[in-house]
């Protein structure tokens, strides 16, 4: 695969079926769908990048974790509104914020309830960086000091 590839294959048939199920749910819930015209390989489990607009907070594609190349797009006008919308789900694995104002970055990253926050970047991982979620996204952290802490007692 080309090393510049951002969206590869889905890792299993059952996960592809889960993603396709959510895309159907998104359509049924009345959102507008956009998928680029692109040729998918015949072999393997592929899903084109998919955008949904005209989405409501209560829609399942907003509330639940899809784990696929599907983006549900909501709009906002104020800091408070976007925080309320972003935090209004039972999950909190990761979040991202894009803004050119430094103080606003930390205003957002502080208030988002998620275990990993990407600011002006996205989807970065490192073994030295703790990974794991808030709320229903799971227990504990893997990687970094916080991945080690459950196995250690730090003494002065």
């Amino acid at each position: 695969m080309d090393k510049n590839t951002d969206i590869g294959a889905i890792n299993s048939k059952s996960q592809l079926e889960t993603i396709l199920k959510y895309i159907q749910i998104g359509k049924k819930e009345g959102s507008d769908i956009y998928q680029p015209v692109c040729r998918l390989p015949k072999k393997g489990f592929w899903c084109p990048p998919t955008l949904f607009t005209d989405v409501a907070q209560s829609n399942r594609i907003v509330q639940e974790e899809i784990f696929g190349p599907v983006l549900a797009i909501l709009t906002f006008r104020t800091d408070d509104e976007v925080i309320e919308k972003a935090n209004n789900t039972p999950f909190g694995l990761s979040a991202g914020v894009w803004t050119d104002k430094g103080s606003r970055i930390f205003n957002m990253t502080r208030r988002l309830r998620a275990g990993v926050i990407w600011a002006n970047t996205f989807n970065k991982f490192d073994a030295a960086s703790p990974f794991g979620g808030y709320k229903e996204s799971g227990f504990g952290r893997e990687g970094g000091l916080h991945g080690l802490l459950p196995y250690l007692n730090i003494n002065a």
């Binding site: 990993v116 970047t121 808030y134």
Partner: peptide, 8 residues
């Protein structure tokens, strides 16, 4: 909960 923030 531990929150990890990335910034370039």
């Amino acid at each position: 909960e531990i929150k990890t923030t990335w910034h370039p």
